[in-house]
Design a protein around this nucleic acid. Structure first.
Lengths: 148, 148
DNA sequence: TACAATACCTACTAATTTACTTGTAATTAA
DNA sequence: TTAATTACAAGTAAATTAGTAGGTATTGTA
């Protein structure tokens, strides 16, 4: 029940975009380098994020990516869900028909509650919250750069 | 981020043991048949549960399995953890050394909180709670047998 | 003691998923 | 026109999942 690297890299990617000061779009290459992640892999990961409307892309030379909204208006669920796929812990939570007994199933009620809890938790945290955490850590740790 | 069938079957297995009325041990074959799960597969699943001390086994003819404690004293985390392995969402939550930056990592704080939330949730629900849910569902649905 | 029923152990396997890599096409600023 | 960038499509090695298969050990009963 581990989170995929796609989701984790996706969050780091979005954090990197969120922490960009200038209004210019950011090259993926730049993020890939600073985060130490394969650019090609990142370019696959950013597609669902673009399709969900979280990032705006600029093609061609001097192209790049920008967030479509303010970090305070993007929550973590919005990032994780398109990357991870459906967030329910068991298929029958999302697709009741996938198991004949789902309407009367006790275990299902458990996974349903738990999936909901996870989704609510992720929905309640925004990119801005994460950046705020970064700031705090940086102050304490005396670090120059944020650590994502 | 789906739960494995091992965990799900494991819970159904433990529920079946918990709902056994007689004090005699239950054959795996019986549970396998009533739950529609391969007996061989169940026999693999029950081993970690035995090793964690949740079930007592009786070998030989008329052998079988019994819960080692009352259903009210067995929580779901205890069942899921040995079957699923470490429940943290990201390796670095359980093994900080697995990533150099873990002490200052913002994402990690997220996964740490979330893993804790999941574990706390599972710890708070016992087999007896699940049986109670079964009873309620059975009353409403007019069903003769519990549905796990 | 022999037998049948049970749990226990080890190994194998097909299918799926994961975490990428590789290659090429399309787009655009300079 | 060129170089830099995103976009798209395909392949792939390793790991994981969800089992199956087959034999061994133990024990109550006839």
């Amino acid at each position: 029940m581990r989170l995929s690297t796609r989701s984790r890299y996706g969050i780091r990617l979005m954090m990197a975009l969120a922490m960009e000061e200038s209004s210019e779009p950011v090259f993926l290459k730049q993020i890939a380098t600073s985060e130490g992640i394969s650019e090609k892999y990142l370019s696959q990961i950013i597609i669902p994020l673009k399709n969900s409307g979280l990032v705006i892309t600029y093609r061609g030379a001097h192209g790049g990516y920008k967030l479509s909204r303010k970090p305070s208006e993007i929550n973590i669920r919005e990032i994780v869900e398109p990357l991870e796929g459906d967030l329910s812990l068991v298929e029958c939570v999302a697709v009741p028909g996938s198991c004949g007994k789902s309407s009367e199933c006790v275990s299902r009620s458990l996974w349903d509650e738990m999936s909901r809890m996870i989704i609510d938790y992720l929905s309640g945290i925004t990119l801005a919250d994460l950046i705020e955490r970064c700031r705090k850590i940086s102050q304490v740790g005396d670090a120059v750069n944020y650590v994502i």
